[in-house]
Design a protein around this nucleic acid. Structure first.
Length: 470
RNA sequence: GGCGGCGUACCCAAGUGGUUAAGGGAGAGGUCUGCAAAACCUCGAUGCGGCGGUUCGAAUCCGCCCGCCGCCUCCA
């Protein structure tokens, strides 16, 4: 059986059949660049990075697009607070985002369009809606009349009656329905603006994604993704605009990742429980965060904890340590043909709506068998299995670095945090080794204990004493 | 009020009708070791929030109840 994807549109898993058999076109809503990205963003980014990687792994040519919303009320507010321009704010946080995404080990998208660079396309889309009677102008604003789009609510499984009943929005009295949303906003004093058929103004929130996704991917395209919170109203409105304008589907599969909570609470500024990506990556390896997220299913809510992340870092370290052993024992696993049984098992798990927890379980089962082979000095089949493990890990974005580099980096980070010096540690180890050679074991154990208190574990291997973090 | 989700061992977390309920961490015992560590082996939920029901058979379907959470407003 092929890949099954849970489609929010049908609220069920569906066989994934792309429009063209060999390629997949996917659009993911990126970030609004008004502040630093936090680990909730990281979950969404990593979720779709794995979708992207896995689609490539199974052989598709993938066109992946992720936008920047660089035009929005929050950016305007921020610029005002700081007495600077929206451009400056957007540029700053796009820069941060690029650093974050590199640090997270994300594959770069084919396109990263910005709203401000697609004003012409946005205006064209709104005009098209006007022609079809799906836009109305009031003063300098243009709204989308939701009752003109019969499928409104199909993604979030609501009907207009329910929505209106539950609406707690401050209603703009000029709108025909409280649910109508702005396609174009007339500019107020001090706001960025562009010339348009409706006067000076700027796009509404949802319209830029409609314009940009179809510009790069056509309509329909295969997969549209984003966080669960975007289902309503953002994605619902994208569907209304794009399908209203062109009378064909916008995207065929809608994927949404679950939320990240902190200690069972939603992350929010008012609770002060937001961790930025930069804060987390200063303390932990990026692949630890990735492993932590992939250990639960992307659609489940996930509770973030420092302890969980620490455990994840150890787990990732275990995979690296095993790969390190393999590389020391065999010439080169890279030149081996990956074990096909393992790859097939991996595909089977991932084909079930990207079941990464099971894929990771598979990786650990394999880590155990590899270690057993290594313990027993058996090299038969080792390279092929290691190659398969590596291929699986890469499809998840793990094992992006060479084992020695990763292990060294983790150790280095820890030394700095503890204010220790590598030379000092080495010196103590040398002292202990001399004591051991001279069979002064009490002395040797005393030194090891001392290092232990510093958080360092020693391993006496045939090749000499190596040290690791507790 | 409307819509939706979750509750699996000490912790994290898969599993949505059928042999022994994945995997990781912690724990216990063992192999190895001067002693350790790492690695490996073994053990570990007769039970999947509670109570009923459907079924030859349910963590898995249905009903009720308890507890937690999300969306309906900007939000990944």
């Amino acid at each position: 059986m092929g890949l099954q994807i849970y489609n929010t549109l049908s609220a069920s898993k569906e066989e994934f059949v792309p429009l063209n058999p060999w390629e997949v076109r996917i659009y993911v809503c990126g970030v609004t660049v008004y502040d630093s990205s936090h680990i909730g963003h990281a979950r969404a980014l990593l979720t779709f990075d794995v979708v992207y990687r896995y689609l490539r792994f199974v052989g598709y040519r993938v066109t992946f697009v992720r936008n920047f919303t660089d035009l929005d009320d929050k950016i305007i507010d921020r610029a005002r607070q700081e007495g600077t321009t929206c451009d400056a704010i957007a540029a700053r946080y796009i820069g941060e985002f690029n650093r974050d995404s590199k640090a997270l080990g994300l594959l770069p998208p084919a396109h990263e369009p910005k709203a401000t660079e697609h004003i012409a396309e946005i205006i064209a889309l709104i005009r098209r809606l006007e022609e079809k009677g799906m836009a109305y102008q009031i003063d300098g604003d243009v709204f989308f009349p939701v009752e003109r789009f019969p499928g409104y609510g199909k993604l979030s499984r609501r009907n207009l009656g329910e929505l209106e009943a539950g609406a707690r929005i401050e209603v703009d009295e000029r709108k025909r329905s409280p649910l109508d949303f702005a396609l174009w906003k007339g500019s107020k004093e001090g706001e960025p603006w562009w010339e348009s058929p409706w006067g000076k103004g700027r796009p509404g929130w949802h319209v830029e994604c409609s314009a940009m996704s179809t510009k790069y991917l056509g309509q329909p395209f295969d997969i549209h993704g984003g966080g669960l919170d975007l289902v309503f109203p953002h994605h619902e409105n994208e569907i209304a605009q794009s399908e209203g304008a062109f009378a064909r589907p916008l995207a065929r599969y809608w994927m949404h990742n679950g939320f990240l909570n902190i200690n069972r609470e939603k992350m929010s500024k008012s609770l002060g429980n937001i961790f930025t990506i930069q804060e987390i990556l200063a303390a932990r390896e990026a692949e630890a965060l990735r492993h932590y997220f992939l250990s639960s299913h992307y659609r489940s809510p996930l509770d973030f904890s420092a302890q969980g992340l620490e455990e994840a870092e150890r787990s990732v370290g275990r995979i690296y340590e095993t790969m390190d052993r393999v590389e020391q024992a065999t010439a080169s696993p890279d030149s081996a043909t990956p074990d096909s049984t393992l790859l097939e098992a991996f595909r089977q798990e991932m084909n079930d709506d990207f079941n990464t927890p099971r894929a990771i379980a598979l990786i650990f089962e394999e880590v155990r068998s590899l270690n057993r082979l290594l313990d027993e000095d058996k090299t038969e089949g080792l390279a092929g299995r290691a190659a398969a493990l590596k291929a699986m890990a890469e499809a998840l974005g793990l094992l992006q670095r060479s084992p020695p580099v990763f292990l060294k980096s983790r150790r280095q980070r820890w030394i700095e945090k503890q204010g220790l010096s590598e030379a000092g540690i080495e010196e103590l180890i040398a002292l202990r080794d001399r004591a051991r050679r001279e069979k002064r074991y009490q002395e040797a154990d005393r030194i090891r204990e001392k290092l232990g208190e510093m958080g360092i574990a020693l391993e006496d291997t045939p090749g000499g004493t190596v040290w690791k973090l507790r």
